[in-house]
Amino acid sequence: MGEENPTPQDQARRLYEEGEARTARAMEELVGRDSFGELLARVTENAMALTRIGADLADTAIRNLRLAGRNDVARLGRQLARTEDKLEMVLQEVERVRERLDADAASPGAKDAGGSTRSSSRRSPAAKSRSSNSSAGARRSHAGRRRSAKRSP
């Protein structure tokens, strides 16, 4: 019975594990203290200040060499990202127009795409009543109708 007659090795192991667990708890208490939080804030502030100085120096050196620095590349990337944002908006607008045209073609009398052509909901009655007083119901029906307008990624 190892429990009743532990070997010296078992005892040493148990002692070690207890010590480690106590150390872990002590460290968790330590990092939970206000003083540690304050220390972390100050260290972060200093690290950020040093990073800024280093980055400014590096950027100045790179620019003086007439090379594109990190900021220049990031600026280009940002322009691309904004263009993609605009493209996404245009695509969504095109889809809305297409849906409206499809809806008008399907029911010549319908002027409002979110009106009589709303797709049926599979939600519970309670959910239906919840969504009835929200414009999101119209959004859902849009999503349902857009199935036919699949677009490549």
Partner: peptide
């Protein structure tokens, strides 16, 4: 929360961190 204790305090300058690192 512990994380709140670290970054929620006034002395943690999140603006400085966000300004230095895009």
């Amino acid at each position: 929360s512990l994380y709140g204790n670290w970054v929620g305090r006034d002395s943690f300058d999140v603006d400085q961190v966000a300004d230095v690192h895009p």
